[in-house]
Design a protein around this nucleic acid. Sequence first.
RNA 1: GCCGACUUAGCUCAGUGGUAGAGCACUCGCUUCACACGCGAUAGGCCACAAGUUCGAAUCUUGUAGUCGGCACCA
Length: 929
Amino acid sequence: MEIPKAYDPSQAEENHYARWESSGFFAPEINEDPNAEPFSIVIPPPNVTGTLHMGHALQHTLMDVLTRWKRMLGYRTLFLVGVDHAGISTQLMVTRQLKKEEHNNPKDIGREAFTAKVWEWKNKYGCEITRQIRREGLSVDWTRERFTMEENLSRAVREVFVRLYEEGWIYRGTRIVNWCPKDKTVLSDLEVKEEKAKDGKLYYLKYPVKSFESRLQPASAAAPPEGGTQNKFITVATTRPETMLGDTAVAVNPEDERYKDLIGKTIALPLTNREIPIIADEYVESEFGTGAVKITPAHDANDWEIGERHDLEKLVIMNDDATMNSAAGKDFEGLDRFEARTKVIEEFEKLGLLEKIEDYDVTLPHCERCKTVIEPLLSEQWFVKMDEMRDLALNLMREEALPHFFPEVPHKKVYTTWLENLRDWTISRQLWWGHQIPAWYDADGNVYVARTKEEAFEQAGTQDLTQDQDVLDTWFSSALWPFSTLGWMSEPGGVATGEFHASDLETFYPTNVLVTGRDIIFLWVSRMVMTGLKFMGEKPFDDVIIHGTVLDKNGQRMSKTKNNGIDPLDVFAKYGVDATRMALAGSATGVDFAWRDERVESFRNFSNKIWNATRFALMNSEGATVQNSPPSEGEVAAASADGVVLSLPDRWISSRLNKTAKAVNRALETYQFHEAVQLLYHFFWDDFCDWYIELKKDEITAGDIESSSRILTILEQALRLLHPFMPFLTEELWQKLPGISNQLHNQAYGKAEQTIMLTTFPTGDDSLIDEAAESEMASVIELITKVRNIRAEMNIKSGDRLAIHVAGLKEIQSIFAANEAQIKKLARADNIVLAEKLEVPKASARAVLTGNAEIAVPLEGLIDFEKERERLQGQIEKLDVELQRLNGQLSNKNFVDKAPEEKVKELRDRKAEIENQSATLGLNLEALN
RNA sequence: GCCGACUUAGCUCAGUGGUAGAGCACUCGCUUCACACGCGAUAGGCCACAAGUUCGAAUCUUGUAGUCGGCACCA
């Protein structure tokens, strides 16, 4: 078999995915065991407009590792895939395209034609992200692919809306909301980001108090008014002067002595013809600013509340694009809010009513998507009342402490605290792309909320109804994802992305684990929990893995503005998908980490290492086959009865493999992906390649079929262990192994499919863990390493063969005797002399081994005595440092008295060992003089 | 302002009461018949700082400093 010297990931990546998918390996039905336990994960649906980024790549890898692992363990596994309709971004994208290609606006073509355009766009371009998901190798079930806007999921959305409305958990109300003037829609609190304004200012405006108005002459107002009371004016401070056009009061604290006499008086509001009252409200803090606050109830949340308390007029002075409307007055109508600000200031200046302007640190709400400054605006919207919803989630948290967050700190607390302070959720959006709100209005403005138009007609007793023009927040439909995708409210047939299976909901809900990013805990996780509890009566998942953020190499968050993003597809192309997956899974769960190409590169090298180890095994595999494994205890017994005695390396590697398998399973059970990656890397590279293959090399190249078969058997199991992390490489290599037969396959899978992904995942067999073999191998490794050290330090040419003299107890001698050939090969020696005492020439390099053994390598003519002295001296010094520490600890009476006996004994043994080694080295050193 | 996390080898990060670890980089050697995306051998850290608990602290507690994040913000 011709196998290239270097691994080419792109080949393997092309070879297998299509076959896996078309063979139905990803679908739960592949598991025909009627008793198989289900395991399910739903993908956090990426935006239909989105493209893959590192965050996706990370979370997708973790989910796929879990899924493939569970599938190999025999679970009936569903990894459900799909995308969401991403209301605003999709609408904006299609609008842009419409303008560019057809020079048309959505308004001009109308709602129906526009949504048709969006569907067209979705069908054409919306599969970009799904193509990328295939590229990642995700074992998601494409036959069940979902889309939030498809009919079945939309039916679920309507059902939830109607039921919540009927129970009074959804209401329509007029509130101050977050208005994005660019996107022209309302946003929920979570879609708004507070950010520092670049040059925030605090403007001090003087408002003339009505009683003194007659004395004021606008033209002469530049001169300070003389005499009279000091309260001719009341000065208010504001960061948004333009809103003064909508002021309907000025408020002061009732206890504020400065203003007490003004309460109840009125103000002639400059630039308007309006007269507004001065009111007293506890909300005002006398210490801040001037202690007097302008009140704009239609443009500020706090002001709105004051307005409610004092029954103030709520004057909306802006249009939906944040230009001033007619209520702002003729001079301002049509101006943008920031132009209006400038003009207001100019006018105040002219009137002599601008007291001062101060620099001021102000944080402003920005639209998370388009970065526009949010305008708080009085508006009628639909809301979900959160108090009872929230209690569902909080009770679950208290009673069962679910969901379990991984890592638990800090997410459990953050999540709970957020729930406790939750405010109502604005769910209507002024868009056309999304689930249109199932509410209809009659001519009188009465509302009829219904599942269908027909139901609404029936309720209203008339067909003269208009449906609410708004759609629902995309997160409203995402909140239902874990059950809407599994078929809640679904009906067979109809327009759907994937197939509907009547039993899925029962089988796969609740899902087992959710993997997602921190930023989405509130937006999505909490809402899934609430709706899941409300509508399914059960939590949507037990565990939530919150993965870390992938930062750039300088530890900065990746962002479009900084243009420091790393495209996973580039990384795939350069290093391979599997290497990328390893690098991602190899980061600690939940911890942010700076992306370094060097790290992926090391896993690319790892791929190549495994490739070549397999290549070597195959190059010498004439007649050898993978044996059915792991062998049963009966087979082991039979083998020993046959007089087949496994060699030390064979016993050792088997022990290492089974220990590793156990540890990998343990790590995955607690979502310690990086731990598993570490274990696999170490096993393959250090144990399997550096030691096992090297120790077996002679046997294999000599054509020992037994030996080759053993290597192949170990390799086959190790590949399975690695498969969830590196699916392409492992499949590619596994396919090449000789003797892969049906009996290797997982018993759960009735079909004898030729794929590693349906083989049994090794869980580790205790009976094959062999501590004696591990300790014997440790001695062999120590011996070889010490000799190699001597070679390196003494600059022995690699071609020069040495003799090794070993002195030690019978036990250790017999270990070395049994493995003489291998030791000779790896230490490059042509002779090993075993004895109880060393009898060697003075010109020898010396070293000590654990367990009272020592070695000497005669180097007549090659030894540099000075160097050897330094070498020994260095080793003695190292031992002495440790000895000192041990002595210190053991001479501490408190330690000896209070520490556990075991611990004390351990240190005493260690001390004896070190003293011994140090003494031996000391004698060696003296002998050199 | 409130809450939280982090600070360990040059870099990126594991570890979490009992001898400090990995990968990469560095140094030295190697055309050793799977792999130079390699092999072999080294070197490198008072685990941010200070105090406390303990026989024993990188690990627990408290404080300080720096970095980052979340939440809330008074016009």
